[in-house]
Design a protein around this nucleic acid. Structure first.
Lengths: 354, 354
DNA sequence: GTGAAAGCGCTAACAA
DNA sequence: TTGTTAGCGCTTTCAC
């Protein structure tokens, strides 16, 4: 392989004795080029193996034809699906995807905003690392539309597309209550993010409506040791330990909700090891409908997150903003409804598979 | 927000009455700029909110400072981890990541190569959609180094970093045989890719060494209906159906190997529903050590894939090629060894949790 | 229908 | 130390 320099318009022009300009227009299928020269030019371009230079094109056109996607952890199946959907839909519209992974690090999150700014992406979809995060305001300020994914960032008045966790949590909790649960708890990850807050609120609302009260806070924060390996978004072992504590403490709830299906794995184990039967002795409900959830025994009742819908809606909203068909419209907050998938973990007196 | 045009070097130069060039050098911390003007320039850049234009920079420097990553399906946990590791390591070295998702489509795969060529990425990491795929030769031909990930492409003599599936499969199979299995089968996905071929070969070798023969081919191809949803890399239901057939057929093997842990989910269900106990009646072994595998009951014996090592090694190899520290070296084929994680599914007469 | 010239934002020669 | 010139590869006026 002769590290041959890339073929440019100039090469084609020179080889054919025409101007660069003509070549450009011929290849772009503009009129004002005779059919004859156009054919010659295309043939020569093919012969030489010409590949347009997207960078040069973007520079002059002022559009990167690229979308930025900022994700905390691709190993979260929900985000993995988001990545697929977004890449696919963006590609359909001619956009390439620049992916940044923040691993819940505020520092990396800040740098991600900077990187997107430098590349001048046409728009950005971001799952913000919450807490601080004012740096994200820089994109809209620079005229780069952005929409928050899954995690809302009310302080910044940005477009948002995510899950209606409040409603889903309320619904799932009520389902458990209707199944006979009178004492419940919710295990949540220990991150100051909107999904956690919304699930907690929905959970509490269901308890209140049912007239269930408790002396202790029924929402329990699971101290999570983020894994350096990035193999898991959540560590079942953390929930396992906590569930063991609850079991040992003696005041066992009738039902346990968990903020994600991974926690359910830990809860299942703790209960099983204590000789308790999930679905009979304790109902369990989760979030995510992760691939394994249907195959646990008993099958896990869980909230299916509409990842594809969210990814699609987010891209579409972003493209709309990019095209500027909407003036400086007010920020849109879109929360997609979920489906509760009922399986044996919430059906007392059945307790086998699915 | 006044869609203010982006601040450029020229703006700073004009505002300060110096030349663009001086601004460029001052900001790049080159010497040959007086401390005085440098300070002034930096201050003005900060005041104006200057952000360097990576595209323009790349165009003139002839380096995109971008790596291309082509993945078939991010919902495969192994690939999800690869994405994380690669993004992180590339970023450490100053590279941005352009992600393309091919969904096993040869057409999309072809276009991915084209896109990478157009952007002029500095290097590419690709999980090729196999079968055809000669288009990938275009990258190296154009001077863009590329390394194949996980799936080898012997026809093209490209660099490759992946898993030593042959050895892992051999080892896992031998483990089952040592556990007492005398009749075994392997369920594999129906894709013409090197991992499947290597796992099958390793499996067969173990059988041969143990003197186990069978009238029928013990390697069974699972007809896979790729899911449009992209939520799953493999569909447990497909393996479930097939396992049911095997059970119903009557000639039940002592042990079942599966090419991925998702298939194990289906196999577990089929066996359980037939009243058989995994680990006692039938041993099961998988590939992937996916997050759920430790939490199945019984826990699944499976091969842990060294995703982080592979991602890191692949990026490092690619960077080495990019830097050209190696001349037109011969293609490197690197296969990482795996760890077999033994759990209850392969330990007869125990068969409860973990 | 075609070519010449200008410029996107930046860096790298070369002068001054 | 600084400014001028040139050019990365492309597209877009504007002449001809």
């Amino acid at each position: 392989m002769v590290e041959s320099r890339r073929v440019t318009l100039k090469d084609i022009a020179k080889s054919l004795g025409v101007s660069v300009n003509t070549v450009s227009r011929a290849l772009a299928d503009k009129d004002s080029v005779s059919e004859d020269t156009r054919a010659k030019i295309k043939a020569e371009a093919a012969r030489l193996g010409y590949v347009p230079n997207s960078m040069a094109r973007s520079l002059v056109l002022g559009s990167a034809m690229t979308l930025g996607l900022v994700i905390t952890n691709p190993s979260n199946p929900f985000y993995a699906q988001l990545i697929s959907t977004i890449e696919q839909r963006g590609r359909t519209h001619g956009y390439s995807l620049m992916l940044l992974v923040t691993e819940e690090s505020p520092e990396v999150d800040r740098k991600a905003a900077e990187t997107l700014l430098r590349w001048g992406v046409d728009g950005a979809l971001v799952v913000p690392v919450q807490g601080e995060g004012e740096h994200w305001a820089r994109l809209p300020e620079s005229g780069i539309p952005m929409v928050c994914l899954n995690r809302d960032f009310p302080a910044l008045d940005l477009d948002f597309v995510g899950v209606d966790y409040h409603h889903a949590s309320f619904q799932a909790t009520r389902h458990l209550i209707e199944g006979g649960a009178r004492s419940l708890c919710l295990l949540e990850e220990d991150l100051p993010i909107s999904p956690v807050a919304e699930r907690s609120a929905g959970f509490r609302k269901a308890l209140t409506e049912a007239g269930i009260t408790s002396s202790e806070d029924p929402v329990i924060s699971v101290p999570t040791r983020r894994r350096e390996s990035l193999a898991l978004p959540w560590e079942p072992a953390d929930a396992y330990r906590l569930a063991q504590d609850i079991v040992n403490r003696g005041d066992l709830p009738d039902a346990v909700m968990v903020g994600n299906d991974y926690f359910a794995l830990g809860v299942y184990r703790a209960l099983t090891e204590a000789g308790l039967r999930v679905g009979d002795d304790v109902l369990v409900g989760g979030f995510g409908d992760h691939p394994f959830s249907a195959y646990l025994s008993p099958g896990l009742t869980t909230v299916r997150l509409p990842a594809a819908e969210i990814g699609t809606a987010a891209v579409d909203l972003l493209l709309q903003r990019i095209r500027g068909n909407d003036g400086n419209a007010v920020a849109e907050k879109r929360r997609e409804r979920c489906e509760l998938v009922v399986r044996a973990s919430s059906r007392a007196s059945k307790g086998t598979t699915t």
